[in-house]
Amino acid sequence: MAVKGEGIVERSLVEDDHILEQEKLIIEGVDVSGRWNTFLAPRVQEDYTPSLEAEVRALGVGENIRRCWQCGMCTASCTANSVYPDFNPRHFIYLVKLGDVQRLAKLADVVWRCVGCYKCSQRCPREVNPAEVMEAIGVIVHRRWGERVAREEQVGTGAYKKQIYGTGRLNLATLMAADLRGLGRQRELLSAEQMRIGMKMFRDSRLFHTLRLGRAPGWSRLRRVLEEHRRSREEVHP
């Protein structure tokens, strides 16, 4: 069976839901099925949602988004863009400033690909700090379209926060275990490679050091304070 929009030359530039194509269509006895009836829905911006920018700015990390003048220095310098062409920080910032909710929603699973390398923030002529604006946009995307974000990212972010806020320390071994369990990949913990590394770390004493990491001293009180503040923040911006 033919793939929808197959006949379009620059197919990658056209978004799926703009392709109007009937699989079976006969008009006045002529079979115009599939590519013979392809139409493209017009791409007309019909409204703006200014509250989206306000939402990003309110997060604190996105506070400098208004400085952006769309020069493209961030994307020009972007590590993630070199792997994922749809990850375009300049474009994300533009979508948020305009409040183009529909286009941003389509890119919900791309936003988290930022590797946090700060090349954009280093070079940005207006000191927008795009790296951290992307963090803020990521939060908005999680809130609005969390179900569209890859499970790996949801599990990963959750595991980090649970462990760091919970213990005040980062235990890379238990973190990875939590990640894999969250993804239903716990069997990989017992792979030959993991067993080899585990044995090696047992012999060279690193396993002992890792087990000893525990919690930061006096952490339980700080944990309560931090959780309280995180909760009140969530209440302000549900």
């Binding site: 604190g60 990390v61 972010t157 760091i164 005040g168 503040h229």
Partner: peptide, 15 residues
């Protein structure tokens, strides 16, 4: 000492 936050908490603002 405690963990520095490893860059994963930035979106939580002041916390």
């Amino acid at each position: 000492y405690n963990c520095c936050g490893i860059g994963e908490l930035k979106s939580d603002g002041d916390v």
